[in-house]
Design a protein around this nucleic acid. Structure first.
Lengths: 173, 173
DNA sequence: CAAGATTGAGGATTCAATCTTT
DNA sequence: AAAGATTGAATCCTCAATCTTG
């Protein structure tokens, strides 16, 4: 607690939190703008394509997609609606349990993702990576990971989509 | 470019960015939920009150408020609308230039802010500060600040509202 | 009844257009 | 015409209610 110095430490942390807010707002909006301008995909749409691409058979149940995306279930329904209208994903029924719907990546979706990859990589480079040293990145990830763990939000599969070839654990369904 | 190792470094940074996204989403939603439950204020509304409270005469032009808040001008108009309906801020005309409108904190707004302070402090403590060491906080702030500077978004006054007593520069109008 | 998914309603935000004042 | 502020339309998101299937 703040018993040591009457609030200065608390201040320091309050500002650190403000910085996190600001940084996210600035970096994210720039990256999303670059991605959208270059590929026509929002970050949310892009992440759907990433997750589907990473999944076995390039498909996922809507529910599982919602867990991965940190988005409400209805939010996922809507993102998938938009992508489906554009032909980038499709819906497929499950034979064994007719309640579930699979979202599946289409060839066009795979191509859109491939096209977006370079664009996103250079956007991240421009607005994020370029400004940090290797040590910064390592320390940042460590702190961010502590925060995720501390808030009960650390799921390995959430944080390591197939963008990484390094896949230490099997993608458990 | 990624000429060093064929992509592993790039991967590392891509994941660091994903972690930033996730951490912001998780930490922020928890803190905002706590604040909203305890004080009825959203983070955006709270920040308006903070900025007005920090300003000379407890008032700011709508335009300046928009700069500070990292929100569009119309967004500010709407937040102020909501707060005005609840009596927490008021609008005042400027005599010398009748185009400008001041948003001014009311006594009720000051009280709401005072009430919210403890709630927000403990929310930040619970979902953020508690999980980081002093060294973590220092390193995190350093990295985040580099990112802000690198993206041309570092404005001292933006990142140090009057929550801090330390006010090195005069709040230029 | 519980689980998976969708739909409807409502909130918050942004862009472009508008209005007023300089 | 330019600056300050607001408004309208559109988008995206969430919550609660609903529908279907197990």
């Amino acid at each position: 607690m703040e018993r040591c110095d009457g609030g200065a430490l608390e201040e320091e942390r309050f500002h650190a939190w403000l910085n996190l807010l600001q940084t996210h707002a600035v970096v994210n909006s720039r990256i999303e703008a670059d991605l959208e301008a270059g590929s026509g995909l929002s970050l949310a749409e892009h992440e759907v394509l990433v997750r589907l691409d990473a999944a076995p058979d390039h498909r996922l149940r809507m529910n599982d997609l919602a867990d991965l995306l940190l988005l409400s279930k209805s939010g996922v329904t809507r993102v998938v609606d938009r992508l489906e209208k554009r032909g980038l994903v499709g819906r497929r029924m499950c034979e064994s349990d007719r309640r579930v719907v699979y979202a599946a990546s289409t060839p066009a979706g795979g191509k859109a993702l491939a096209d977006a990859r370079e664009i996103l990589a250079s956007a991240i480079q421009r607005s994020f990576s370029r400004h940090l040293s290797d040590a910064d990145v390592a320390a940042l990830r460590s702190s961010l990971r502590q925060l995720l763990e501390g808030n009960g939000a650390w799921l390995e599969r959430r944080c390591s989509p197939s963008y990484a070839d390094t896949d230490p654990v099997a993608p458990a369904t």
